[in-house]
Design a protein around this nucleic acid. Structure first.
Lengths: 169, 169
DNA sequence: TATTGTTATACTCTATAACTATA
DNA sequence: TATAGTTATAGAGTATAACAATA
């Protein structure tokens, strides 16, 4: 059996950058499947977390933060408002602006979202010891910081159906 | 200034799973930008690598490996064949099947692709020391193996325009 | 009858560009 | 005039399902 120059033990799986892309897509997909039980997409979860962090932001700000055009944000926010998870308040000082906030139901949903996130973290990292898990988190955090990535958002939020598990016919 | 229970030094960026999704999307995007100079998409690069690894596979096999429906694979392979990077050979034993292979030009392109991959690896991991870089690769490899990910392919290949940098109007 | 490759079509998602209301 | 939010629309990308050739 021949062996390429890339063939290292135990099995060559590509460099760190490729593994990041592969594992990142995998992790995002699994998370999407998990929160589908809460009837949420990753982008919706991202908005809820964003509103918990900084309440009262305008739709334009939030759309920018999520990387989606304002026109798409409208229907996106509509869905969450109809389900009673977020509230739109008119800004009395500038009546063009909405201030978006979490409702009580939204805060409850966020708590369930955090549980899902913790379970997800364990599922993805189950191959590692607690010490290795911490090492990995530290290394990844340094990479993210150096690459200039904003905490809490990732490009997958741009898509409405970002790795949605299934589709109803 | 208040501090949430998640707020650890130096700045809370989420768990390892979130960082994986974030960095993975980022790495995939940067790689796409880089190989756009070769006029290749990530999925096209994936096919070239797949053919280098195992030549002569049928379109159906390759479509399955890339996670795309056979119907879409046709136009996908057409593009690479027209550019002279791959060749379709009829299988004499079973005339329904094509055997796809790299052309000489395809092999040259693959060499440039490997250079791009190495530069990409350095760009993404520049925050780490050589030793940390190895640690990270090892940890990620263990994660990928435990999660059952096939070496060399990732779900982003499913999309034709997977994180393509720009679009011509 | 089953399978490979292919084409056609209908459908979803999307950005772009108007439009309104406020400033 | 400029900006926040909204709506409409045309275009791109997609899966599904039919199709032809071969087994």
């Amino acid at each position: 059996m021949s062996s390429s120059p890339e063939d290292k033990s135990p099995a060559f799986r590509g460099g760190a950058a490729f593994l990041l892309a592969q594992l990142g897509a995998h992790a995002a997909q699994r998370f999407a499947e998990r929160i589908a039980a809460l009837d949420l997409t990753p982008a919706q979860a991202g908005l809820l977390r964003l509103l918990a962090q900084t309440p009262g932001r305008s739709q334009r700000e939030l759309a920018d933060a999520l990387g989606m055009p304002p026109s798409r944000f409208v229907a996106f926010a509509d869905g969450l408002e109809e389900r009673g998870l977020i509230e739109r308040h008119r800004n009395p000082d500038d009546r063009r602006l909405y201030a978006l906030d979490l409702s009580d139901a939204g805060r409850e949903m966020l708590a369930r979202l955090r549980e899902a996130g913790a379970a997800h973290e364990q599922q993805i990292c189950q191959a590692l010891s607690p010490d290795e898990h911490r090492q990995l988190t530290t290394l990844l955090g340094r990479l993210a910081e150096q690459q200039g990535l904003a905490p809490g958002v990732h490009p997958g939020y741009r898509s409405v159906r970002a790795d949605r598990p299934a589709r109803k016919p």
